[in-house]
Design a protein around this nucleic acid. Structure first.
Lengths: 153, 153
DNA sequence: TATGGGGCTTCCCACCATGGGAAGGTCAAG
DNA sequence: CTTGACCTTCCCATGGTGGGAAGCCCCATA
């Protein structure tokens, strides 16, 4: 089976299949005499597994572990569950962050007249952030743990 | 004022200040005789505006418009409000997407024993997605509108 | 059999926002 | 004048994904 068929049957674009191979997420595909990648049913199965895991928000790096567990018939289901739960926690964290941004913005928008006049609380708020107390240039160290950047987009 | 001070006072890293200048979000900074960027109070003000807008989830591209409105004293507050609301809608959409992923994963995790046995509904689900009806290789066209990729991370 | 069109290959570029780091110039304090 | 902190530019990496070019390959139809 050519990469095009594998793509159509797995839902993973040909570009991505090559990429996954390149980064070592999936093994290097067999090649035909002329250099075409050649896939079997088992490969489609694996690709679908990957697509589904991506749908559920697993980063590619983590899917490696998931695939290992999938293939390991002697696995402990607790290990799989732990992975899923860690993912849920991260998703919830991102959600909370976005929620906070949305709520704040919504509040600001609500308090804006939205007419032809220039006066606008949104812009005023952008000028002078309402964040508690950070001004002395020192205290913005705020743990470089999870939120390095701003939006989790 | 050097870029380091501007950074400390605005909360925007020096790296980012240079980047914003490079992509044209902020004007090119004045330079001292020796080539150092030199900032004034007004620049700090602008950088803080940008930082705050990023905090609220505005993509850099959109901040250009925001800055234009900010500087335009003859603006209509309705224009600002529209921008904010569009952003809120996008945030809500991302939230909904993440929420769905989290819920699904959580359901799966709940139904997984999480013990030493290998049997695991999570992996089973990854093998065979529970999505309504997509199997015949044709129907996965699913409108390439907003969700080009999977996770909105 | 020749030709054309569609599929395959690799390679590079772009996104978005951010950080890391190297190589080299500058400034201010000691 | 030396030293160390700062500045400059330039390149690279991230994470997934798509776009596209240049050049083979394969098959069907004329």
């Amino acid at each position: 089976m050519n990469i095009g068929d594998a793509s159509a049957r797995s839902g993973v674009s040909a570009k991505m299949i090559r990429y996954y191979e390149q980064i070592g997420l999936i093994p290097q595909a067999r090649r035909t005499a002329s250099g075409y990648r050649d896939y079997a049913e088992a490969d489609i199965h694996m690709l679908r597994f990957i697509a589904r895991a991506r749908d559920l928000g697993f980063p590619v790096a983590e899917i490696t572990d998931l695939l290992d567990l999938w293939r390991d018939t002697g696995r402990r289901s607790a290990d799989v569950k732990a992975l899923a739960q860690a993912r849920v926690r991260e998703l919830r964290q991102k959600i909370a962050h976005l929620q906070e941004m949305a709520t704040t913005l919504e509040d600001l928008a609500r308090s804006c007249a939205g007419n032809d006049r220039p006066d606008c609380p949104i812009l005023r708020s952008l000028e002078a952030p309402p964040r508690g107390g950070l001004s002395k240039t020192e205290d913005q160290a705020q743990s470089p743990t999870q939120f390095n950047g701003r939006i989790a987009s």
